[in-house]
Every structure is written in structure tokens, then in C-alpha cells.
């Protein structure tokens, strides 16, 4: 764990805390974000992992983590974090764990869990002011089971359960959290590691319910060549589709305002899940609708 303040690229960790040898796909944008987060957060953590791709990180007797790990059902990671937090507090109160050896409870959950089944337990945990960090890696679908649609699947995206493209709107998990007035919330992406590292440093210094929402370009589910994971991630930011922002001291601040914004077609055309928007006939109406929503978002930001 780096105690130093991260100001520039040169301050980013040069060696890694998260172990190699995990079963994530080659080019997994979720793993990229998790390793960058872990490198800054440090090993004094207990991970509470809702069922999803990332539960394959730890397959007994192998784990990439340097601390504890608990597997929960998709709906109950935040409740699991409450249990870990309570256990640590009880141990410290009884003098069985020195105060300086306290650990941070970290939820690691996919979008299927975070935007859907897990929302109730999470809402209640934020309401109780639980001291935990919630990391959602958002690959915009149920990745582990073959990319079915979730509440995070964006308009137009083809998934196993939306073969002609998602017709519904992606939920806004960041705003759902902000409506609970948590201690901290931020969006990050592995392709922008400095922005990510600064936010993890800030989150680490705060207590209470904290959200890190990481967009996770997924070569398998989004259908692109693994080597393009960073390019796709950067495009998500440059098109304005994925705003980098944080909620701190009661205010939302954008940490990156893409100017000028790259047209959304560049992002869409790079992924197989949007191929039907371009062939056999180009769906200009839907592409225009996606662009208009992004434009409206940034107009409101000002």
C-alpha cells in the first residue's frame, strides 16, 4: 500500500499487490480496475464478493488477495459486509484484535448484483451508515453466465437475453447512491488510472458508506478484441457516455469534462454488441437517440 499522495502518473504503484494467475478473461477491464484499486487500497481489507465473474478470483486454495475473502449470494454482499464490520468491531471491543490491526470491509460486486438483486441490502446498509467500501465493476450484463441483460445494460446493446438490442434505459447507480447521501461516491475506469487512484486514496481516508463504480469493458460480453480494452474504456469517457465524477461533501463534481466530445458512434462501432446498429442497415434513429441523451446530460452539467 502506498502511503504517498498520488499526484501524477509517476506516483502510480509500479509493483502490484493483487496476485497474478486468476481466471478472468484475457483483457478483462474489470480485473484491470480491481488490480488498480487494490494496489492503492492495500491488503488490510476483507473482500465480500457477490456471485459473478470476480468470485472466480478466489477458487480455493488459490486467492489473489492478501487478506480475507467472503463469498455471498448476489443479493447479500452489503449484508455480508455488515457482518464482517460487526465481527471486527466486536473483536476490537473485546481486546482480541488490536485497534491498529483493524481492516476495511470491501464489497466487490458486478452490475447484475449491484443494480438489481443486491440493491435492497445495499440501500439498507447505506441507510445504517455502515462503514464499508462498495466496489461495483460494471460490465453491463450478467457476464459470468454468458452476458444476459441486467439493469446496467445500455440502450441498444445486444445481450443473450436482448438479441435485438436492449430497449430499456440503463439505471443510474451513482445517482441511486447519491440519493442516499453516502459518505462518498465516485465513478472510475481502469483506462484512466490516475483519476482512479486519486479517488481510491480519497475513499480510503473517509469512513462510512462509500461507492466506487467502475465501468468494466468486457471483451467477452461486449465483443471486442482483448487488446482494445483500454481504447474502449477511453472512448467511453471521451464520448461522455461514462462521466467521471465524484460525490463528496454533499456535492457532485466532474473530474473530467470531455471537450470536445467524441461522437458516440466511435464507441458503438468498436463493439460487436452494437453491430446491429450498423449492419445490415444503419439505425440512425437509435444512434441519434443515444447521442441526444449524452448531449442532454452534459448540457445539464453546464
Amino acid at each position: 500500500m502506498s502511503e504517498a499522495v498520488i499526484r501524477s502518473m509517476k506516483d502510480l504503484p509500479s509493483t502490484h499487490l493483487l496476485g497474478t494467475g486468476t481466471a478472468m478473461c484475457a483483457g478483462c477491464g474489470g480485473l484491470q480496475a480491481v488490480h488498480e484499486i487494490y494496489d492503492v487500497l492495500g491488503g488490510r481489507t476483507v473482500f465480500v464478493n457477490a456471485a459473478g465473474c470476480m468470485t472466480l478470483l478466489a477458487t480455493y486454495p488459490f486467492t489473489p488477495f492478501r487478506g480475507g475473502w467472503l463469498y455471498t449470494s448476489m443479493a447479500s454482499a452489503a449484508a455480508g459486509a455488515q457482518g464482517i464490520r460487526d465481527a471486527l468491531d466486536v473483536l476490537m471491543a473485546k481486546g482480541r484484535l488490536p485497534i491498529e490491526e483493524d481492516l476495511t470491509a470491501v464489497v466487490l460486486a458486478g452490475d447484475g448484483s449491484s443494480y438489481g438483486m443486491g440493491l435492497s441490502a445495499t440501500s439498507a446498509a447505506i441507510e445504517r451508515g455502515l462503514d464499508f467500501l462498495y466496489v461495483c465493476y460494471d460490465n453491463e450484463g450478467y457476464g459470468n453466465t454468458g452476458q444476459q441483460a441486467s439493469g446496467a445494460t445500455p440502450l441498444g446493446a445486444r445481450t443473450a437475453t436482448t438479441p435485438r438490442g436492449q430497449r430499456l434505459r440503463k439505471k443510474d447507480l451513482f445517482d441511486i447512491w447519491v440519493a442516499h447521501r453516502p459518505a462518498y461516491a465516485a465513478t472510475v475506469i481502469g483506462a484512466e488510472p490516475l483519476d482512479l487512484a486519486k479517488k481510491i486514496e480519497r475513499a480510503r481516508s473517509i469512513r462510512g458508506p462509500r461507492l466506487i463504480l467502475a465501468l468494466a469493458p468486457c471483451p467477452t460480453g461486449w465483443e471486442f478484441e482483448p487488446e482494445h480494452a483500454v481504447e474502449i474504456g477511453r472512448l467511453a469517457v471521451q464520448t461522455g457516455l461514462f462521466p467521471l465524477k465524484e460525490y463528496v461533501d454533499g456535492k457532485v463534481v466532474h473530474t473530467r469534462i470531455p471537450r470536445p466530445r467524441v461522437p458516440v458512434v466511435d464507441y458503438l462501432a468498436a463493439q460487436g454488441r452494437f453491430r446491429h446498429l450498423f449492419e445490415p442497415v444503419r439505425d440512425d434513429a437509435l444512434i441519434g437517440e443515444i447521442q441526444a441523451e449524452v448531449d442532454a446530460y452534459w448540457r445539464a452539467v453546464g
Binding site: 502518473m9 502510480l12 504503484p13 509500479s14 509493483t15 480485473l31 481502469g190
Partner: peptide, 21 residues
């Protein structure tokens, strides 16, 4: 010897950077 690009962005933590970058 930029010190961070490939080492940070490798999803698998499979690139480490020496002290001399």
C-alpha cells in the same frame, strides 16, 4: 521508461516496473 503505462494497464498485474523504470 515511462514507468507506468504497460505496468498499470496490464489487467493481470503481469507487468512490474523495476526501480530503474
Amino acid at each position: 521508461r515511462c514507468s507506468w503505462v504497460c505496468g498499470t494497464l496490464c489487467p493481470d498485474s503481469a507487468i512490474a516496473v523495476d526501480a530503474d523504470r
